[in-house]
């Protein structure tokens, strides 16, 4: 089996080295890139997590990648979005009111209840729907202050609980979006990335 090349969008913020190491552990060959043509044409692409909702969108805008990423996801090209990478698939977030996300999922990210310790930092157990192809039950690492609360229509996913149920991850066809950080979620996280790379792809 040949090693799969994975375009990692160079967002210039966040724990990119961890993402690259995580892909290597899962058996992929990460290629750090900000070139829209490479992102568009690569079989696999990862949109890593960044600081805030607005920083995530601005990062994509500066690199001219907003439409490229949206088209990849709408065309069902294998794409993994992590943390804020997942959040910007939504319409918006309480974190930055008025900032438009990619709008692929018609919902808004909301902040965790003020009675909780925020950000949620640490390992929490997720429960995946039976139909999931990439996600499994297990403990994974979260670092988030905002979250979605319902699995949107047309998606499958895994739920978790922090002061109430929230969406830990979503998958649809060849698209995987994780609120948690698979790259630093030990063996459970590595297996999620490996299945995303290895499961037979649905036609784009």
């Amino acid at each position: 089996m040949t090693t799969k090349n994975v375009a990692v969008i160079h967002a210039r913020v966040g724990n990119l080295a961890s993402v690259l190491a995580g892909i290597r552990r899962a058996g992929g060959n990460p290629i750090l890139t900000e070139d829209p043509d490479v992102v568009a044409s690569s079989e696999f692409a990862i949109l890593p997590g960044v600081g805030s909702f607005v920083a995530g969108m601005l990062g994509l805008e500066e690199l001219g990648l907003v439409d490229v990423v949206r088209e990849r996801i709408c065309a069902n090209k294998p794409t993994l979005a992590v943390c804020v990478g997942m959040q910007i698939l939504f319409e918006g977030s309480e974190e930055n009111p008025g900032v438009e996300g990619l709008g692929i999922i018609p919902a808004t990210m909301k902040k965790f209840d003020a009675s909780l310790r925020v950000p949620q930092l640490g390992w929490n157990n997720i429960v995946a729907q039976n139909e999931c192809r990439y996600l499994n039950d297990g403990y994974v690492y979260f670092a988030n202050s905002y979250r979605a609360t319902e699995i949107p229509l047309g998606w499958k996913g895994a739920m978790c609980d922090y002061g109430g149920p929230f969406v830990a991850a979503l998958e649809r066809g060849n698209i995987l979006a994780c609120q948690f950080h698979p790259e630093i979620s030990g063996n459970v996280g590595m297996q999620v990335v490996r299945r995303w790379l290895d499961v037979e792809k649905q036609p784009c």
Partner: peptide, 9 residues
């Protein structure tokens, strides 16, 4: 640092 990389960092 928080503005660039996020509070969680």
């Amino acid at each position: 640092v928080a503005e660039r990389f996020g509070n969680q960092c």
